[in-house]
Amino acid sequence: MTIDGSGKTGPRVGEIAMAPVRFAMGLVDAPLRKLQKVAGLGGMATFFLLPNMLIFGIFVLLPFFINFAYSMTGGSALFLSDRSFVGVDQYARLFDCSNYLDPNSCAEDTFWTAVGNTGWFVVLQVTLMIAFSLVTALILNRDLKARSFWRAMFFFPVLLSPVVVGLIWKWILQRQGLLNFGLYGFGFDPYAWLNDRTWSFAAAVAVSIWAHMGFYTLILLAGLQAIPKDLYEAAEMDGTRSMRVFMRITLPLLMPNLLVVIVLVLIRAVQIFDEVYVLTGGGPGTSTLFLTQYIYETGFATQLRNPGLAAAASILMGVVLVVLTLVQLGLGRSSDKNGGRK
């Protein structure tokens, strides 16, 4: 027997290594054959999907239905069996508003403040995140010196835990933080950035972009590198201006990646919580209080918690996320029909 065609004889290394695997497969082969006879080929597909379906069911679907059941109950008790059925009262309480644009006119004013803040955050963060990620990806796609170093630099914040991100920026932005220390050195008066409603909101957006931009840049960079070079060469030979090249070649061919990035950024923005919670605690006042923090505080962190109200708010947030995902799927399909690159 040979192992490398050199003419030497001896045991096949591969065969020995595979022996335990073959043994294990031999053990399951017979019962699976019997099962296939009973269930048929279609049934076997279901059988193999079952573990995943079970995990999905237990960890995604079941909590969703339990959460929905909680949203129909009242009181501060934890177990469903100890809670009273209140129908849609919790939803009615959330929507009890004379003017949705004025949170002070709503029974649950902090919920609508959080909705408004989250809406503004999504608009600003998604727009700026896409813009910065795209520009960074375009720059990193060029022949730069130390290109790998720059790519690593932009990706590095993604590796940090959100709590660490929040703490780092808190140390920079707080009244006695690094930024004021630097400004003081240049003769400026220190400023309490995190006590200012506008600046703290801007800080929440900026820190979130800084922390996650590297990941989206990477997705866009992969898309840019997949665009055939000959298209650019042809455009160059035709003397096409660079803006036109970007609008007619780069952007259309990058659209599938861009759509993925938009949806991921949107979902992440709606769910914003951890780094901002550490950075500002939702303040000053409620100017950086977002939906997830409202849900957390209502369900867990206040005296005499209201899990039902928190569950109702999270169901509404889930509906928004489903709508956003469906919009993305619709956009993706229409992009495919219009000849978008897969």
Binding site: R175, A192, N195, G281, G283, L289, E297
Partner: peptide
Amino acid sequence: SKDVWVSAAGSTYRAGADDFINGQ
């Protein structure tokens, strides 16, 4: 101090002890 009362939402507890310790 605005740092203690204004810089958070909800019923989060914040103490001003560090500012006192730092002579602020």
